[in-house]
Design a protein around this nucleic acid. Structure first.
Lengths: 193, 193
DNA sequence: CTCTTTCTTGAATATGCGTTCAAGATACTC
DNA sequence: GAGTATCTTGAACGCATATTCAAGAAAGAG
């Protein structure tokens, strides 16, 4: 017997960053070897192939994002305050210069969804579960009388997510802190009526 | 002497669609040959290489989009009415099943901007000029007293464009007419106060 | 009609890619 | 400590790709 030497989570996070940096197609096995420290053979043994590594990385990404979400909404603070700091956090992420500035889900959605039905299914499932979590947040805000809107929690969650998608793309053309924060504040204001 | 046989505009539009369909990296020269009807040699003679064809296609895309824009805003109708029908047109485009449902600019932005500085510059220039056109529209609406907002025309134009980016991405996960139209109407309502 | 210039063709080239596999290394079991 | 099962290694393979180029085709000039 012999156990695997590498740390699976660390490898998947490194792969995530590599895929976000160059996109799936342009990330070669050499890039992945350099990023993860794993030789091609090990990658094929552990994940079957390059696409398998992407799928595993998507799973890790989902888990990491879910944990991040919990961190913002588990504290005992007003729901809308938590939502605003969550949005600000996303803006900060867009403005950072790291490769992780992108969202792996939307990046993969743009590059692969139309060509790979399984990837598309996974991405839609992930993004839908994110939307459901955001809808719960709005529902809580309504129940707590923090928010009185003509729009339902579901409508608000859709608009919020559309806004975040828009912010992410906008940051790629004008990554200026002032403009990005202004957009985020307009979005938040419109959501809170 | 001998003139070229192919129609340059038609070739560039075919290339545009091919690139939108599969993305830049996954579109092979064989795909481009099939799409444009031009043999590899001709493509290299006319556009230098695959990247040159993309750059030329981006130029054609810009021209086509500018013409489309003129079509919506040159008629003698209230500015906000024109803007709403322009937005509805974009939603329709997102919902269509054709390969042209995507926006070549945002698709290239996602795939190439981080890796190719020249492409990035061209894309930012194109998208900025689009934003400037939208800002003019809002300025006109304000001047004509169609719209009274605390926000400037520039702020409104940025929010509008962020919204369109968001709609485009959202359509890739939930391409349902009802939801898309609802989002567009929420966006438009928020812009008009 | 003929010559010349230019465009078109598609097979050939070289490169880089994802993938495989057999040899070597390592850690656990008894 | 020997044996064994599993993991790791990296060179080798076949394939697909972007690009080139020399031969052939076509259109205009005189």
């Amino acid at each position: 017997m012999r156990n695997a030497e590498f740390n699976k989570e660390a490898v998947l996070r490194a792969a995530m960053i590599a895929f976000m940096d160059k996109g799936y197609a342009k990330t070669s096995m050499q890039d992945l070897k350099a990023a993860t420290g794993l030789h091609p053979g090990s990658i094929y043994c552990a994940f079957e192939n390059k696409r398998g590594l992407l799928l595993a990385a998507l799973g890790q990404y989902r888990a990491d994002r879910a944990e991040e979400f919990q961190h913002f909404f588990s504290a005992a603070i007003p729901t809308l305050v938590a939502l605003k700091s969550y949005l600000d956090h996303i803006v900060q992420e867009c403005l950072s210069c790291e490769a992780a500035q992108a969202c792996l889900l939307t990046k993969a959605l743009n590059e692969l969804a139309e060509q790979d039905a399984q990837v598309q299914t996974i991405l839609i499932e992930n993004l839908s579960s994110w939307q459901a979590s955001i809808a719960e947040v709005f529902h809580q805000a309504i129940v707590d009388n923090e928010l009185t809107s003509k729009r339902s929690a579901e409508q608000l969650s859709r608009f919020f997510i559309m806004g975040v998608y828009g912010l992410r793309t906008y940051a790629q053309t004008h990554p200026e802190a002032e403009i990005m924060h202004e957009l985020a504040e307009q979005l938040f204001a419109d959501l809170c009526q």
